[in-house]
Amino acid sequence: MGNFDRKIETFLRVFIDQGGYREVLIGLKNTLSIAIIGLVIGIVIGTAIAAVRVMPKYKILPRILNNICSFYVAMFRGTPMVVQLLVFYYVLLPLMGANLPSVTVAICVFGLNSGAYISEIMRGGIQSVDIGQMEAGRAVGLGFWTTMLKIVIPQAVKNILPTMGNEFITLIKETSVVSFVGAMDLYVAFNNIGSNSYEFMIPYLVMAVIYIVLVFLIAMGVRWMERSLKKSDRSR
């Protein structure tokens, strides 16, 4: 195992003495902010789309909105995240003449992408809430959107929380594709450490452990939220 000890020594030298940890911290910050802000954007977009898709469709406007939303979901579910990232960064931005930091672009793309997935999760959640809840809201004179926001969506969120945790975990792991547009994330940081020392085994091992710890913490957080949201349920 002398060989292994040397590998660890090399890693620690690059990681601590040569300041590799700074890149890792930046990478961790970027990974987390892309996943978290992306998720928040995704929840807002996804909830709006889901509500539009369950709207009664007597009038013209809901029908038009519904078609737009269907198109959006089809586009973002039909292409890989990497492709969306590349298209935004190397096609759409230059076409618009805009110049944004790659992390910002990644946050937007992750938000738009997860919005498409979350809209389907949320639609299932909304449809799992008894139709009587909507009817009761409408019967006392509340509008569709008011009833949706105050009554149906809070109950839907409780039903889909485990699935949303899953989506968040997927986002965290998928952030590793942002290296394609030159953003610094956990993978890039550890890859740099490896390149600097010609020694990849330990950096990649540590990287994997960090991902596992992140995912474990999220899973714990989701379970805690589930418990605290159960207060209006029958005592179980």
Binding site: D130, E135, A136, I151, P154, Q155, K158
Partner: peptide, 10 residues
């Protein structure tokens, strides 16, 4: 309503 339909989250 027959099924009461009280708002469960309130």
């Amino acid at each position: 309503f027959q099924q009461f339909n009280l708002f469960n989250n309130k």
